[in-house]
Design a protein around this nucleic acid. Structure first.
Lengths: 243, 243
DNA sequence: CGTCGGGTTGATAACTTTCAAATTTCGTGG
DNA sequence: CCACGAAATTTGAAAGTTATCAACCCGACG
């Protein structure tokens, strides 16, 4: 796979126009392909000298465990996403990363990443931009948990996942395959699994979305967008900002 | 004020060892000093070509308004913090920024910032690092809203603010001045103002913290840390990662 | 087959909001 | 320095949302 075709390169290219040297630097980051089985943590909070990863296939979730044993999922990552940047920049991982299903990813060693930033500094700016997009998603998630009720929040997550999957060619406006269990949804939404179940049934009964058998089917996009107060601006790409 | 003494330069210096050229580049970012009165938005969601700011004195909050009119405060910023990075990188502001009290800040024009990244690229890496620290705070906030109850959440916020203020010399382990109203706390914690009031009284009755008359007084730090499950790792500085 | 991890549903309990009203604080003009 | 009005804090009671507990069902899989 060349950088030209990697979803990660395409993502960065939306922010800085990449030179040949920059693209081959990105290419080199893709050399250590690895496979991770579902359910076993790829990164564990507190680990030091952790690598970062570029996700090629599969889904993962980033989460934290609280002292009481409950957990909060901060975000899901899908193909093309960059994982564990903070773990590298801080030398020690501040969250866990668990594959939801089997995952293929390119391992990026901490030193390789920092060296890449030194040698091709515009890539640092590009990664800064990509990281900011991720932060925008976390912010939107925070807003949802803080001020949206369970139904709005659930609808919002389903819409966001759909929009993100569509960007990488894995979904459409009418639906997408989704490997998340109701427990995972609950931990992401700050709800109990039981309540997620009820909310999903409500959304189904309302004729808005169906999420069953690993498939999300959006029946009334407009109504769903309105219910969730979903504004996909925060996911949109613009043209390159740096020439 | 020289970069050497600016809290922002000190912060970045914790991540990359800054050269003379880099410090004077930072210095130049500090040239446009401005003052903003309390309560009037400095940045409004949707505005384009927005500047960023480096906060010199005062407190601000970053927030979003939902369609129903409710708002969620994503974070508070205190002196030394960088504001509105995403607004610059995305060309359009994705959140509002409002001074909680009168604020002095250096305006950083979008082009100046991007130019600085081009000319002194290690600063881009340093800003990436600083932005990642901010994201870590947002993540911790998200976790709290998702999985901590009102009392734990409130305790956590009071502890975090204290720890951050201490880093810039504006607070101690025993307390700090805090200009936030219970309404602002409520919008940050995802609670109603009425409930915040009750929670604060509980914390006071338990002999843990007092927040009255703009002053937070921590009476039993250990008990408070335990209640909130507060781990300040995510705020800690390490030595420079880039030589 | 039997087990086990989801998913589903009902009943009850816990937490938080909302509404309403009283009280205090604080800035400002007299 | 005091009076006044606006804003913030405080408290009680009732309503609403979500969690918890307890079953039961179902399909995958060894």
């Amino acid at each position: 796979m060349t950088a030209l075709h990697s979803p990660f390169a395409r993502k960065l290219g939306a922010f800085v126009a990449l030179s040949g040297a920059e693209m081959s630097a990105l290419d080199r980051l893709h050399s250590r392909r690895k496979v991770f089985p579902a359910g076993r943590d790829m990164v564990h909070e507190g680990q030091i000298n952790q690598s970062a990863y570029i996700l090629a296939s599969g889904w993962v979730c980033s989460y934290k465990i609280l002292s009481g044993g409950t957990r909060q999922i901060v975000d899901f990552q899908i193909p093309g996403d960059f994982l564990g940047l903070r773990s590298v920049l801080f030398r020690t991982a501040d969250h866990n990363i668990e594959p939801v299903i089997k995952v293929e990813a390119s391992e990026v060693l901490a030193n390789d990443l920092l060296e890449t930033f030194s040698n091709t500094p515009r890539l640092a700016t590009a990664v800064l931009w990509a990281a900011s997009r991720d932060e925008a998603m976390v912010v939107e998630h925070l807003v949802g948990i803080g001020r949206r009720d369970a139904k709005e929040r659930t609808a919002h997550l389903l819409l966001e996942l759909g929009a993100r999957l569509k960007l990488v060619g894995l979904g459409s406006t009418s639906g997408y395959g989704c490997p998340l269990s109701q427990y995972l949804l609950a931990d992401a939404l700050g709800l109990s699994a039981v309540h997620v179940n009820r909310v999903l049934r409500e959304l189904r009964d309302d004729g808005l979305v169906t999420f069953q058998h690993g498939q999300v089917e959006i029946h009334d996009l407009n109504a769903l967008v309105q219910l969730a107060d979903f504004d996909k601006t925060y996911l949109d790409h613009d043209g390159p900002l740096l020439k």
